[in-house]
Computed example of a mutant assay.
Amino acid sequence: MRIVHTSDWHLGKIVNEFSMLDDQRFILKQMIDFLVQQKAELLVIAGDLYDRSIPPADAVSLLDEVFYRITVEAGIPIIAVSGNHDSPQRLNFASRIYERSGLYVEGIYNKTIRKITLQDEFGNIHFYCLPYIEPAIVRADFPDEKIHSYDDAFRTLIHHNLTEIDLTERNVLVTHGFFSYLKNPDAVERSDSEISIGGSDLIDASYVDMFDYVALGHLHRQQKAGRDNIRYSGSPLKYSIQESTSQKSITTIEMREKGELSIKKYGLTPRRDMRVLLGSFEQLSNAANVQGNREDYVYAQLTDDSLIPCAMDKLRTVYPNIMGMELIGRKHEFDASVSAAAAVKNKTPQELFEEFYSAVKGEEITDSRRTMASKLFSKLQGGYDDETN
Rank of each mutant, 00 (worst) to 15 (best):
E363G: 02
L376G: 06
A311M: 04
E326Q: 03
A359Q: 07
V344T: 07
R294F: 11
A343Q: 15
R369Y: 11
M312I: 10
C310S: 15
T303S: 14
G324N: 04
R272V: 04
E387A: 14
M312L: 12
E295I: 10
G383N: 09
V298F: 03
E354F: 05
T366L: 07
E326T: 01
R272K: 15
G324A: 13
G292N: 08
S378W: 01
A373D: 05
L376F: 15
V318L: 13
A340E: 08
P270R: 06
D296V: 12
I322D: 02
L307S: 05
F377P: 13
I365D: 02
D296A: 01
L284Y: 07
V360E: 13
A343K: 12
R369T: 12
L277A: 04
I328N: 13
K314N: 07
K314E: 10
V344S: 10
T269E: 15
M325Q: 08
M323K: 07
K314Q: 14
G362K: 06
Q291F: 07
S358T: 10
D296H: 09
A311S: 12
S368G: 02
D313W: 01
S306R: 12
S306Y: 12
E295M: 08
V298E: 02
A311P: 11
E354Q: 11
A342R: 12
R294I: 04
V290Y: 05
A336E: 11
D313Y: 10
G324M: 02
M274R: 09
P320A: 03
A342P: 04
R316K: 13
R272W: 08
S368E: 13
F377S: 13
S280M: 11
L352D: 09
K375L: 09
L315C: 07
P309G: 11
G279S: 11
F377D: 08
N289Y: 05
R294W: 01
A373Y: 02
